[in-house]
Design a protein around this nucleic acid. Structure first.
Length: 427
RNA sequence: GGCGUGGUGGCCGAGUGGUUUAAGGCAGCGGUCUUGAAAACCGCCGAACCGGCAACGGUUCCGUGAGUUCGAAUCUCACCCACGCCGCCA
């Protein structure tokens, strides 16, 4: 969440920075917050003064009791002031609840390096590799997948509904191969610690990373037990250190997890949802970093390079987009998207989003560190990136690797994991 | 699911209504001593919020939330979590 003190100190500065998100509602939020904050401090000052008086009188009562002197006159006064304190505390609680709820709705401040504008201002800052050319018309993955007998969308729909793909045979093995390949890369070469986290998380966790309260609609919810299915492993990985004070010497910390992700994708049906492009359940390898604030910018470049390494090893052409301030996610201060080229659908598909959240998630989840032994705790900076999301990686592998005979050439780096360098159509 | 026991600072742990501004220890920081280090000894040493330029002052916090009381770590209720036993179960 945003820093309330910073907002109070420089409301117009915060307003200007948030206005870059091009979201008209944040102005109203700030007005409400400033008003509630004034109200809160006014009540708080009165409560605390009353309590200070009461504490002094109470000590006097204790002294007299010990000395076996009468204290009835003081007790009568205290009874009255107790009622007043209780009433004021009730008022205070209401104001604080309203204030907290409002603060949780405010998105992060875009970073200076984040370009201005809406999504049309997203800028390609580099590209890697060359989209392959074909002597024939390249086909989309849903056709290839069916012909190869590795992807069964109709049966997925029968089991669960549209957007729940079934991978079969070498398709299922491809999922397993990608998981092992990516986990090995991040743990062995990038220094991440592998984690196998819970797939259901409580409300506090979903709030800590910023999924709640604003995006309740996007989450699958297990109402009976007040738990939510993960939309991304970012949630458990970041919340591992919720309400902790880390020793500064252990930073930076990096975690990697491969998990299923569940997204309701409310209202997203129709365009761009064909085949595996947008689904309700998919597997993803996620990397998360906890870093010192002064390392934030360098760490953003680092985590992005870790995600890029996956695409480079797979030989998949991609481009890096700097998202504009009007297009970055709720908790993000700056985001770089990696888009892989998919020859069959003839478009660039987002396979990773590398974000720095500055201290926004750390505030929400109360994740701090001690810069030096004995020093005051400060909020860490958190970052994450997909490394990578499987369905669109599979799309690119199938569509870019397709041959005239309908077989698929598998990249050298992945072949040992898959047990073959070629997928062939069913007879 | 049932019954029982417990939850205290970065960590361990004492504390059952009023000198608790939470004992003591460990870790950490500073110092004495030492060529240096260790040991020993001495001192400091939790977090959040409010006011203040600051020095400083004030309030709150003993799993969470309500309640009793002039006053709650301490008493009552509910909930959460951990552990143990029983039941059920992959």
């Amino acid at each position: 969440m945003i820093d309330l003190r910073q907002v109070r100190q420089d409301p117009e500065g915060a307003r200007a920075r948030l206005s870059r998100r091009l979201d008209a509602s944040v102005g109203v939020m700030l007005d409400d917050i400033l008003a509630l904050d004034v109200q809160r401090r006014r009540i708080l000052a009165r409560v605390e003064t009353l309590k200070a008086e009461r504490n002094r009188a109470t000590e006097e009562v204790a002294r007299r009791k010990r000395a076996r002197e009468p204290a009835d006159d003081l007790l009568a006064d205290l009874r009255a002031s107790g009622d007043e304190v209780r009433a004021l505390e009730g008022e205070l609680r209401e104001v604080e609840l309203a204030l907290d709820a409002r603060v949780l709705e405010v998105p992060n401040l875009p970073a200076p390096e984040c370009p201005d504008g809406d999504s049309s201002a997203n800028a390609v800052i580099r590209t890697w590799g060359t989209p392959p050319t074909f002597a024939f018309a390249p086909r989309p993955h849903w056709e290839l997948g069916e012909q190869l007998g590795i992807l069964d969308l109709p049966r997925g729909a029968k089991l669960s509904g549209s957007g729940f793909p079934v991978f079969v045979g070498m398709g299922a093995r491809l999922v397993r191969a990608l998981e092992n390949f990516m986990l090995d890369l991040h743990t062995q070469e990038h220094g991440y610690v592998e984690v196998s986290p819970p797939l259901l998380v409580n409300r506090a966790s979903a709030q800590g990373t910023g999924q709640l309260p604003k995006f309740e609609e996007e989450l699958y919810r297990v109402e009976r037990d007040e738990l939510y299915l993960l939309p991304t492993a970012e949630v458990p990985l970041t919340n591992l250190h919720r309400d902790e004070i880390l020793d500064g010497a252990v930073l930076p910390i990096g975690y990697v997890a491969s998990t299923p992700c569940f997204r309701r994708e409310a209202g997203a049906h129709g365009k761009d949802t064909r085949g595996l492009i947008r689904v309700h359940q998919f597997d993803k390898v996620e990397i998360v970093r906890f870093v010192r604030p002064e390392e934030g910018a360098a760490e953003h470049a680092r985590i992005t390079s870790h995600a890029e390494a996956v695409l480079q090893r797979l030989g998949l052409p991609y481009r890096v987009l700097a998202l504009a301030a009007g297009d970055i996610g709720f908790a993000s201060a700056c985001t770089l998207d990696l888009e892989v080229w998919a020859a069959g659908v003839g478009t660039w598909l987002e396979v990773s989003s590398a974000s720095t959240f500055t201290d926004f998630q750390a505030r929400r989840a109360n994740i701090r560190y001690r810069p030096d032994p004995g020093a005051k705790p400060e909020f860490v900076h958190t970052l994450n990136a997909s490394g990578l999301a499987f369905p669109r990686t599979i799309i690119a592998l199938l569509e870019n690797g397709q041959q005239a005979d309908g077989s698929i050439q598998i990249p050298e780096a992945l072949a040992p994991y898959l047990g073959t360098d070629r997928l062939v159509p069913r007879a």
